[in-house]
Amino acid sequence: MTTPAMRLTIIGCAGSFPGPDSPASCYLVEAPHEDGTFRLLLELGNGALGGLQRSVDLREIGAVAISHLHPDHCLDMCGFYVVRKYHPDGAFDPIPVLAPEGAGDYLSAAYGIDDGFGMDGQFDFHEWDESTPVTVGPFEVAVVTVDHPVPAYALRVSAGGKTLVYSGDTGPTEALAEFVRGADAFLCEASFVESRDNPPNLHLTGAEAGDYATRGDVGRLLITHIPVWTDRDEVLRDVKSTWDGDVELVTAGSVYDI
């Protein structure tokens, strides 16, 4: 059996808050590296830390990448901090955390740390820089700014000649149209439906996600971040109005080889 260049596991995909069937955003990306496997976590939203442990030993996470500092994308980093600092077998070594500016202070405040050191003993925070891709393990990660109420980024993750683009949270933006070009898989949010009057600068509809996938000539479209109050069938119909390729609305626990 051929080993995939990357494997994507959907830990959590509920939009904006945890739902009855899924935690908030969290995606495990794995790739071969140095005779083993490197595990990169995209997001660690509220409720996701529990489900993550069904897929991987928390000690095996090699790095975390956070698209933006909303609780449904990063708040379980507080619980992950507890695991890494207070494990009875001893504290874990720090790992890279790629995130927007101020992530360390934000997460430390969320946990209630006021000692001046924050979470630095467990996490090595690095700010995103659009001009310079970052290498972690076998992965090269590039970012582009997208349209959201807080500083937010889409992520382009490459390894072994394959590419996964993750939209993060975004309203319609031309930056995403070019950023996804040629991706083998496009993990894209679609929180809104076309039939409603949606607020601007916040999220995409399925039709908008499909349009970016079509214009970018991606290999596969994976739709995520659908809130529990949104009709998934309507989202899929919207996607198919602009995209005629391979598409799936992801669910927690799904695994994709890229």
Rank of each mutant, 00 (worst) to 15 (best):
T3Q: 14
P4Y: 07
R7H: 03
I11N: 01
G12Q: 02
A14L: 02
A14N: 05
S16V: 11
S22R: 03
S25V: 08
S25H: 07
C26W: 05
C26S: 15
A31I: 07
H33A: 10
G36Q: 02
T37F: 02
F38N: 05
L40D: 05
L41R: 08
L42F: 13
L44K: 04
G45N: 08
L49D: 04
L49E: 01
L49R: 01
Q53N: 09
S55C: 08
I61C: 05
V64Y: 10
I66Q: 03
S67Q: 13
L69I: 09
D76E: 14
D76A: 10
M77D: 03
M77N: 06
F80P: 04
F80A: 09
H87W: 15
H87F: 13
G90M: 10
A91K: 12
F92S: 13
D93K: 14
V97Q: 05
P100S: 09
G102H: 06
A103P: 07
D105E: 15
Y111V: 12
D115T: 10
G116H: 13
F117A: 13
F117V: 14
G121Y: 11
F123S: 04
E127D: 15
P133M: 06
P133K: 04
F139R: 00
F139Q: 03
V141N: 01
T145E: 15
V146L: 00
H148T: 00
V150Q: 04
Y153Q: 05
R156G: 02
V157N: 02
G160V: 09
G168Q: 10
D169F: 00
T173K: 00
A175K: 12
L176W: 12
R181W: 09
R181A: 14
G182S: 08
A185H: 09
F186A: 09
R196P: 00
P199D: 05
T205D: 06
G210E: 06
T214I: 00
R215E: 11
L221G: 06
H225I: 11
I226L: 04
I226H: 00
T230G: 02
R232N: 06
L236I: 12
R237W: 03
D246C: 03
V247R: 01
V250D: 02
S254I: 00
Y256I: 07
